[in-house]
Amino acid sequence: MFRYLVRRFLQMIMVFFATTFIVYALMYWTGGDPIQALAGEKPVNDVLRAQLTKEYGLDQPFLVRYWNYITDLLHGDLGNTLVGRPIKDVLADAWPITIQLAVIAIVVTILFGVTAGVIAGIRRGSIFDNTTLVLTLIVIGIPSVVLAPLAQYLFTIQWKIFPTTAGGDASLWDLLLPGIVLGSLSVATAMRLTRASVSENLRADFVRTARSKGMPGRRVIGIHVLRNSLIPIVTFLGVELGSLMAGAIVTEGVFNIPGVGYQLSKALTTEDTPLIIGIVSVLVVIFLVANLIVDLLYAVLDPRIRYE
């Protein structure tokens, strides 16, 4: 177990350096002229350009600039946006909103996806199973760029159940519809996965053993089957955090929620390279930590991993 942890941790550090390096390199070679971007439409004279180049360390070689960036990052200094606002502040405002959104999405996924998956897995071939199969296929088929505006139109403009946009200081209620929309994509996948896992475990030999021990059906399913089915589900939910972040860019854009996804898409349109790199770096860290937690949970849930 200890060696497993150490190995996972080392892997995580390597992935961190690799991804931040790639992102930094991409922005370095493809991002336009940062000084022009900084100045906006105005022409930049040579004196100012030379001064700014020195100030931002743009005359340094690439590797030195990457190194400076990483050391700053590890000290918690993400630098400033092009308009001079500390990136730390931008993220401090955006994160709580996105986290709330993600929590709503995950809760929705578990509440509907996992529950429906368990029922469908137990009653394979039933009306419930077939209905949910069709529904999930439809939801999986609709990309979030379509689903989000559609849900917004139906629920906020047509039926006026939820507020149209969330805006600056969004309440949990404001975030509910965007959260559900964000989660609905994972709901479908979670439901298919849970169904497969439950129905597979129902056929396992240990279920036959539990029944021959005289365990009642609800215990056979509730303890023996579910405990085993949990292993792939937890892994999925952890990995799904990553897709939630991607989905958040669209959803936050549509519902005008000033979360991380919203900031990122804004940074992309204004070509705010430092902000893009800052957000992506933090996303990478979060993604890695989530993966580490999933691996730990996996080891807790599956003793065969724990003692390998």
Binding site: T209, S212, G214
Partner: peptide, 23 residues
């Protein structure tokens, strides 16, 4: 169900798959 395990018990061929791996 009360008879199973209490009056009549059964053991199986492959104990590795017949036992629950996570308990």
């Amino acid at each position: 169900r009360q008879v199973r395990g209490k009056e009549i018990s059964m053991i199986f061929q492959d104990a590795l798959s017949a036992l629950n791996p996570v308990f």
